[in-house]
Nucleic acid binder design. Sequence first.
RNA 1: GCGCCAGUAGCUCAACUGGAUAGAGCAACGCCCUUCUAAGGCGUAGGUCAGAGGUUCGAAUCCUCUCUGGCGUACCA
Length: 555
Amino acid sequence: MLIKETVKNIISESVAAAQKDGKIPELPLPEIKIEYPREDKFGDYSTPFALETAKIIKKSPFDTGNLLKEYIEINPIIESVEVVKPGFINIFISKVFLSEITADIIENGDNYGQSSRLEPENINLEFVSANPTGPLNVVSARAAALGDSIANLLETSGHKVDREFYINDFGNQVRLLGLSAWIRYRELKGENPPFPEDGYHGEYIKDIAEHIKNNFSAQVEMLSDEDSIIDFFSRKAIEYNVNGQKEVMKKFNIQYKTWYNERNLHESGKVEKTYEQLLQKSVIYEEEGKKIFRSTDYNDDKDRVIIRDDGRPTYLLADIAYHVDKYERGYNRVIDIWGPDHHGYIARLSGAIEALGHKKKSFTVLIAQQVNLIMGGELVKMSKRLGNFSTMQELIDEIGVDAARFFFVMRSMDSHLDFDIELAKRASSENPVFYLQYAHARICSIFREAAERKIHFKKSEFNHSLIDDSIVNGLLKLLSIFPDEIRDSADQLEVHHIASYLLRLAQTFHKFYAEHRILSDDAERTNSLLVVCFCVKIVIKNGLKILGVNAPEKM
RNA sequence: GCGCCAGUAGCUCAACUGGAUAGAGCAACGCCCUUCUAAGGCGUAGGUCAGAGGUUCGAAUCCUCUCUGGCGUACCA
């Protein structure tokens, strides 16, 4: 149950009732905000509603608060209401209600935290979509962790989400990749051809050449002209790289619904079709043989070429076609996660989408800021072309999937992330992911010990009064807001809130553990404490699942 | 030049998107294991929220300007 929303409804009903009684004028009022007060003495929930409406309804916030107090307090969920100094309305939740949270958590189990929407969105979430010209790097790893977790978050909060990866298997870079591979191939054959300056210098190109030599030599020998040879190498190199990317994603516990080929977009005529549509919307003009989209109408710095003077479409046109295709496949919300080097691209693409009649709000681009990889206190520069980079695969091998995924999502994606490999590698207390997993493992250990001692745990028997203290109540309160945390994070598309929440929960649990001996001779008390542990375990597990991190039973 | 992101404790970052006395984790120091996992707990110390104005009941958060760092500013993808 979403308590925040419930409280909000209670307030708005109270306001409506007060209006009906003529105590508050019937004017349009701002949306009611519900907050978690910083201090316990300010209640479990709080609203600045009276402060915000003071001017509109021409009443002192203090009076409004006291007026609403009686309407709010009628509700059985509410223990009491206090109106404090400037005019905050502080709400205390009833203890009975808090006691019932354990039953709610246990009943829902793996599904606790999920909620449903009146109008669920059908979302396409595209992330990573790295060029298939080489292995995935750590920036892609960040986007991967963020994308999958945000998808989980949106699903858990009641939307439908499909994960998608766009493969740029078309254009200049692809040809250059094929050429690079072909040259390495010839080197393997004992030749010594010149290597293009702007080619791909990475060692992995040699692996691709080796792969082609081992599996497709006969086919290569049958090709005579250079164009078809390079085309063949391009296709095989792309295939090799994409397969590698798929493998890494699988290891990272990410399951894409769709891997979408740019090549298909061109070959199916969708790119041309999109051009026709833009033409009909009169947002295209011609200049020196080029077809140009008037993106300045949509807040872009300059208009953008979408068809070159030689007739070939630019990347932008294909990308517009691709996004239009997403809508045509039935999605009513489209979300992309991009790297920081593409932010300048947002205006032109969203402009085109808007020009073609889709709601501006239905398209969102999230920018995942850069990752500074730090090794031995030094910044590691990454560049695919120079062949000097650390791959996502290497990262996973070195620090493990759990640590990697957690580190990438624990910070806001707006922040540049300093990723200290050495630090993340250390399996010690410095590492927050271990701290969290340890809480889960610890609970499992308590239950193993309980079984050892022949204690029969009855999850439906919870006697709050036996363990009614501030630590337990704080823990129960935290558990109760989990669905709200998910809902809020999902609406803001900010998954790091879940990481913070879980760390706070783990911290509260460790404190609880230190202060309460769970297993004792008092059977009834023991059982009630075990119920609390059981609930914490469920929430940690469900929360970690959203982040794609394992909840180990033993450590 | 213009645009985007960032600037908060020694370091890495939060702060419920305008709320009450700005919080965690590392690092430092001092305590706590004959008892369910010490990968843990408790405590001490640490701040001109980059700077200056403004907006209002109320600003780390919003608006303007300045400074610093990163990225971008293609008929590349």
